[in-house]
Every structure is written in C-alpha cells, then in structure tokens.
C-alpha cells in the first residue's frame, strides 16, 4: 500500500481520507514559533466534490489513491449505466453508474467528450467540459427584432437541461452553455 507523508504533500496529489479518494488542493506547512509543526491541507473529495480543510501532524501519512482521469466519449445509456469510450485509440469502454454521472447528465450528448475520473479503475465521477453546445428542444417562439437585450425565457435543451436564454432564440438553434454556472453564453451558428 503506497502512502504519502506530509512532506510529500502537494497540490494535485490523490490520497484517501475517511475512505474516499481526495485531491489535495492546497498544502501549507505551518511551524508555530515554539510549537509542534503541522500541515494545513485543503482536500477535495472526488466523490462528493466537497472541499475539506484538515490539519495533519507533520510526519503523518495518508494512503495514496489510485485515481486517474481520462478523456472519454459518451456513447449511450442503458438506463442503469452510462457507457463511455476512451479516446486514446484503445476504444476501451467503461460503464459509469448513476451516482458518478448524476451531475453531468444534463450536459451529456452522444459523441461528445467528457472527463471520467477512475478510482481503482472504476468511474467515480464524470465531469463535463466547461462549455457544451446543445440544441434547443423546447421554448416559447422567438420574438423578432428583440435581438439586442432585455428579457429571457426558459428553454429546454436536447439533454433535458433547462437554461435561461434570450427571447429571440427558437427551437432547433444551437447554443453554448457554461456547465459550471448553467448559464447561456451565445448562439452557435450552424
């Protein structure tokens, strides 16, 4: 079992804390004037996305987490699993369960590429790219001439995500969305 001691901690290191794989976001060695040294560490739980702040006595160790990230193409869902394929030429396929893919589902479009994080070779989290381009499946008819500014209306996209869009947009148009905020960015000329 590989372990990392506090003096090997650095951002980007993948470790196991309370049974979950975590990414070290920030590590600071602190040595109070006359006191015991410790490391203040911010870790992101890769399963839940929550960020923890912990202190470790200098010299303590954490188990290394076998975590890897791959660019993978989304193929299809069979209702229980979501299937992805590696884009490195190996065509290797993996099935991600609901828990790992849940946050990404509103942005999943077949043949698009996603980042799949594997822990012990199983997918634990699927992340969309920062921007995705999706088609409007449903929205109120567009208002001609209202292209400048003004109000917005809800639009349901082909994946089921609901995004606020400007009034002039119509069904069938393709838009660019920021997946981090869920906000409309611009219309994509097709």
């Amino acid at each position: 079992m590989a372990t990392y001691s506090t003096n090997e901690f650095k951002s980007g290191l993948k470790v196991i804390l309370e049974g979950d794989p975590c990414n070290i976001v920030e590590n600071e060695f602190v040595k109070p004037g006359k006191g015991q040294a410790f490391n203040r560490v911010r870790l992101k739980n890769l399963k839940t996305g929550r960020v923890w702040e912990r202190t470790f006595k200098s010299g303590e160790s954490l188990e290394a987490a076998d975590v890897m990230e791959f660019d993978m193409e989304y193929l299809y869902s069979d209702g229980e699993y979501w299937h992805f394929m590696k884009t490195d030429g190996s065509y290797e396929q993996l099935a991600a369960d609901k828990a790992s893919v849940e946050e990404c589902v509103p942005w999943l479009k077949e043949t698009d590429k996603y980042i799949v994080t594997l822990w012990n070779e199983s997918p634990i989290v699927v992340s969309p790219p920062n921007f995705v381009e999706l088609e409007i499946a449903e929205t109120d008819p567009g208002l001609k001439g209202d292209t400048a500014q003004g109000g917005s209306k809800p639009a349901t996209l082909s994946t089921g995500a609901v995004v606020k869009v400007p009034l002039f947009l119509n069904v069938g148009e393709i838009i660019r969305v920021d997946t981090r905020t869920g906000e409309y960015q611009n219309r994509v000329k097709s």
Binding site: P32, G35, Q36, R54, T55
Partner: peptide
C-alpha cells in the same frame, strides 16, 4: 480542524499555537 493535536499531553500549549498561527 485540530486533528493533529488530538493525542497531545498538554492541549493548552497546542491550542494557543494553533489559534495564533
């Protein structure tokens, strides 16, 4: 988080250090 002090003999010393730093 004060996990690193959990098995100290004299916690007052460690707590002062932690709070000050």
């Amino acid at each position: 988080n004060a996990d690193h002090l959990s098995d100290e003999q004299d916690n007052a010393v460690g707590y002062l250090d932690l709070l000050f730093s």
